[in-house]
Design a protein around this nucleic acid. Structure first.
Lengths: 206, 206
DNA sequence: AACGTTGGCTAACATACTTAGCCTTTTCGC
DNA sequence: GCGAAAAGGCTAAGTATGTTAGCCAACGTT
C-alpha cells in the first residue's frame, strides 16, 4: 500500500477545489477520498472529520478574503479604496463560490478564524479613515453596513438571486456608489431631522 | 394503525417549527417523523422527499416575508417606508431564522417561488416611488442594493457575525439611515463626476 | 356492504460519517 | 545500519439518514 502523500493542507486544498467547482453541498469525505484514490477513513489521519474540515475551509476563506481586501486597499483611499475593496470582495466570492459559503460557518471558538475576521475589519477601518470615520461606534456601524452590503450582494449573486434582465456588474457599480455616498454622509445628520410627515424625503443639500 | 392526520401543509408547518427552533441543519425526515410519531417513509405520502420539503420551505419563507414587507410598507412612504420595510425584513429573519435560511434555495424552476419573490420586489418598487425612482434600470439597481444590504445584515446577524461590543439594533438603524441617504441621492450624479484619480472605471453608461 | 383510494407500515438498499483496530512504511535515535 | 516509534495506509463494523418497493388497514363513496 503505497503512501498517497496526504497532509492536512493537501486535503484542505482538494476540498477547496471541490467546493469551488461543484458547490459547498458537494463536499463529502467520500468524494475527497475518491479524488486521492484512498479509502475514506484514511482521511481521518489528516483532518478531524467533516466538521473540522468545514472549519478549515472557513479559515481559508477568511484568510484569503482578508488578503485580497488588504491588497485592494493598499495605496488607495476614499471612494477608490471602497471601490477596490468592494470589487475584490466580489471577485473573491466569484472565484471561490464554494469556499465563500463557508466563510460564516467557523468552528466554535476558532481563534484563528477570529483573527482572520479581524484582519478584514482592520482593512475596512483603514478605509473609513479616508472618510474621517475614526474608530468607535460609528466605525463599527459603518463596518457592519459595508460587510452586510457586500456579503448580501455576493450571496444573492451566487444563489442566482439576480434574475432581472439588467447587468449585474452595473448594479454592483451603483452599489459601490451608494456605499461611497453613505460613508461620505456618515458623520452628518443625514436623514434624521427630515422625519416629519412620513412623505417627505427632503432635499439633501449635499 | 391509527391515522396521524398528516397533510402536506401539516408536514411543512412542523418543518418550519423545527428549523426555526433548531436551525436549518436540524431538518431531517427522521426528526419530523419522530415528531409525528410515524415511521419515516410515511412522510413520502405527503411530500416528495427532502429536496421537495426544502423547496416548500423556501416558498413559505418568500411568501411570509413578502406579506410582512407589504404590511410594513402600507400607508408609508419615503424614509418611513424604508425603515418599516427594513425592520419588517429583519423582524422576519429574527422570528424565523431557520425558515429564512431556505429563502434563497428554491426548487429549480419554481414558478410559485418566483411569484413570491416578485411580490417582494414589487413592494420595494413601490417604496422607491417615494424617492422618485421609477421603474427601469435605476429601480432594479436600487432593489438589488436594498435586498443585498438587508439580506447581508440578517445573514450576518443570524450567523453570529456581529461580535463587537456595540448594539446591533443601533447599527441597524444606521443602516436604515444609509439606505435612505443612498436612495435620496439615487438620481443625482452622486459620485460620478469625482472620477479623476484614475482608479475608478468612470463608465456608468447605464 | 363492497370497493377503490388514501395513508399508514415493514423491509431492503444506498450513501455517508465515524470509530476501532491492524499492518506496512517511514522516520529517527543510537 | 538497526531497531523502536510514529505515521499513514487499510478493512471491518456501527450509526444515521434518505429513498424505493410493496403490503395492508382505514376511510369515503356509492
Amino acid at each position: 500500500m503505497p503512501r498517497a502523500g496526504l497532509t492536512p493542507d493537501v486535503v484542505v486544498a482538494a476540498a477547496v477545489a471541490l467546493v469551488d467547482a461543484e458547490g459547498a453541498g458537494a463536499l463529502t469525505l467520500a468524494a475527497l477520498a475518491k479524488r486521492f484514490g484512498v479509502a475514506l477513513p484514511s482521511l481521518y489521519k489528516h483532518v478531524g472529520g467533516l466538521d473540522d474540515l468545514h472549519g478549515r475551509l472557513a479559515l481559508v476563506a477568511a484568510r484569503d478574503l482578508g488578503t485580497a481586501l488588504r491588497k485592494a486597499a493598499t495605496g488607495r483611499s476614499g471612494r477608490a479604496a471602497v471601490a477596490a475593496v468592494a470589487r475584490a470582495y466580489r471577485g473573491y466570492a466569484q472565484a471561490h463560490p464554494g469556499c465563500y459559503d463557508y466563510l460564516l460557518r467557523p468552528r466554535p471558538d476558532d481563534a484563528e478564524h477570529a483573527a482572520a475576521s479581524q484582519e478584514i475589519l482592520d482593512v475596512l477601518y483603514a478605509v473609513f479613515d479616508g472618510y474621517s470615520i475614526r474608530s468607535g461606534p460609528p466605525a463599527v456601524d459603518a463596518a457592519r453596513l459595508v460587510r452586510s452590503t457586500l456579503h448580501g450582494f455576493v450571496a444573492l449573486e451566487n444563489a442566482g438571486g439576480f434574475a432581472m434582465a439588467r447587468s449585474v456588474d452595473r448594479s454592483f457599480e451603483k452599489l459601490v456608489d451608494a456605499l461611497d455616498t453613505a460613508l461620505s454622509h456618515w458623520g452628518g445628520s443625514t436623514a434624521r431631522e427630515r422625519v416629519k410627515t412620513g412623505l417627505e424625503t427632503g432635499d439633501p443639500t449635499s
